[in-house]
């Protein structure tokens, strides 16, 4: 176990390093770099002046050189200054991360709590109207554009019914759970269809195995077959997928946060990229990547634990 963990952590560190270099390079290719801004401030600058300014800012150095000095600063805790917020980057991020974590945790839990039972229901009664209805619902869930779903929720609950706020956190007005309802609903529904489909496919596969036939032949009741024997095996592939989903969840959060003006990491990254706030965009992206990778490692560990216990349990029976 410790060796597996170490290998996973090293792999994640390598991915993070590669992403940081790639994003650093890409951000240098975005419009509106500091020199562009100086140019717009003083259109009389000649190209010789521009070259001198670049040299003054160190922007004439090779990419790798600049990246390494950024990395050195970052590793010593200096992540630079956010132009958009006029504050050090490290002061801007924690609040956004907390807001996103709140949104993502609520949506993931709800989506699993609703999706997995629906998937099991559909798998245990194949061909029934109930299974067909769940299948159709899941298909709609994976096919609906997430931002359009968010717009529909706003249209229904904020415009037509007027019972829920259309966006924001309401912190100035005392805040409240009401502001969380629509974003969490939108993000939950964005993942729900996939969870139903994975659980259904995995449970169907498990119910075809020999040990299920044995359990049925033994005369066990159907619920005991499903929940006592098939469920744990059926959950394994689903656990892997949920572990790999943190990246997707982050992407979904970006859309949801943008539509609902929810001040989380996704919206922060979007605003930073759009507002040419290089330092903030880079660090926020890396933080998002690091969080996602950490989620993957945790899911791997959970999977290993689950797998080991099952093997152990089977050996003891």
């Amino acid at each position: 176990m410790p060796r597996v963990l170490l290998a996973r952590l090293l792999q994640s560190a390598a991915v993070l390093l590669a992403v940081s270099f790639a994003v650093y390079g890409l951000i240098g290719l975005m419009p509106g770099d500091p020199i562009d801004l100086m140019l717009s401030a003083d259109p009389r600058l000649s190209s010789a002046d521009v070259a001198r300014l670049k040299a003054l800012q160190g922007l004439d150095r090779p990419l790798l050189d600049r990246y390494l000095s950024w990395l050195g600063n970052a590793l010593s805790g200096d992540f630079g200054y956010s132009r958009l917020y006029a504050r050090p980057v490290v002061e801007v991020l924690p609040a956004a991360l907390a807001n996103t974590a709140q949104l993502m945790a609520a949506a993931l839990c709800l989506s699993l709590l609703i999706g997995l039972p629906l998937g099991i229901l559909a798998a245990t009664r194949p061909g029934s109207p109930r299974a067909a209805a769940i299948h159709l619902f899941a298909l709609a869930g994976i096919s609906i554009p997430p931002f359009w779903l968010a717009l529909l929720l706003i249209l229904l609950f904020a415009v037509l019914l007027g019972v829920l706020p259309a966006g924001g956190t309401g912190i100035g007005d005392g805040g409240g759970l009401a502001f969380l309802v629509l974003p969490v609903t939108a993000l939950t529904l964005a993942g729900l269809g996939g969870h139903v489909r994975y659980m259904r496919a995995s449970m169907r596969e498990a119910l075809r195995q020999d040990y299920v036939r044995t359990a049925r032949a033994k005369g066990l009741s159907e619920p005991r077959v499903v929940f006592g024997h098939a469920l744990r095996n059926a959950l394994l592939p689903v656990a892997t997928i949920v572990g790999l989903e943190f990246g997707t969840l982050f992407s979904g959060a970006l859309v949801t946060e943008t539509v609902f003006a929810w001040p989380g990491m996704g919206r922060l990254i979007y605003d930073a990229v759009m507002g040419n706030d290089y330092n903030l965009a880079l660090v926020a992206l890396l933080l998002a990547t690091a969080t996602t990778l950490a989620g993957n490692v945790l899911a791997d560990l959970a999977y290993l634990a689950l797998d080991r216990r099952i093997r152990f349990g089977e050996g003891g029976r």
Binding site: V19, F250, L254, Y270, V273, L285, A288, T289, T292
Partner: peptide
């Protein structure tokens, strides 16, 4: 697969 793709695509 594991990366937060949409934020990276935006860049």
């Amino acid at each position: 697969v594991a990366l937060p793709l949409l934020p990276l695509l935006i860049v």
